[in-house]
Amino acid sequence: TEEYEYTDEQQAREAAREWREKGYTVTIEEHNGRWRVKTG
């Protein structure tokens, strides 16, 4: 599992979409105004 943090929701969603296209399972969670994208 890798985790990436973004301050911008749009960036987080874009990144998540790219990971999904590569076949990863992706979770996005908002935490204190930051967006965490977890792949695994």
Rank of each mutant, 00 (worst) to 15 (best):
T1Y: 15
E2Y: 13
E2V: 14
E2Q: 15
E2D: 12
E3L: 11
E3H: 10
E3W: 15
E3Q: 10
Y4F: 13
Y4M: 09
Y4C: 10
Y4I: 08
E5I: 13
E5M: 11
Y6L: 02
Y6T: 03
T7S: 14
T7H: 10
T7P: 12
T7D: 15
D8Y: 06
D8W: 04
D8A: 05
E9N: 03
E9K: 05
Q10T: 12
Q10G: 10
Q10R: 12
Q10D: 12
Q10Y: 11
Q11W: 05
Q11H: 09
Q11K: 11
A12E: 00
A12Q: 00
A12V: 03
R13N: 10
R13K: 11
E14P: 00
E14K: 13
E14D: 12
A15E: 04
A15M: 07
A16F: 06
A16K: 02
A16R: 01
A16D: 02
R17V: 07
E18P: 03
E18C: 07
E18F: 11
W19G: 03
R20G: 09
R20Q: 15
R20F: 12
E21I: 04
E21N: 08
K22W: 04
K22H: 06
G23T: 01
G23V: 00
G23M: 02
G23H: 03
Y24G: 03
Y24D: 02
Y24M: 08
Y24L: 09
T25F: 14
T25E: 13
V26N: 01
V26Q: 01
T27W: 08
E29I: 11
E29F: 10
E30R: 07
E30A: 09
E30T: 07
H31G: 06
H31M: 10
H31V: 15
N32H: 06
G33V: 00
G33N: 05
R34A: 08
R34Y: 09
R34Q: 08
W35C: 01
W35V: 02
W35N: 00
R36P: 00
V37H: 00
V37Q: 00
V37Y: 01
K38V: 15
K38H: 08
T39Q: 06
T39W: 13
T39D: 03
T39F: 15
T39V: 15
T39R: 14
G40Q: 15
G40I: 15
G40H: 15
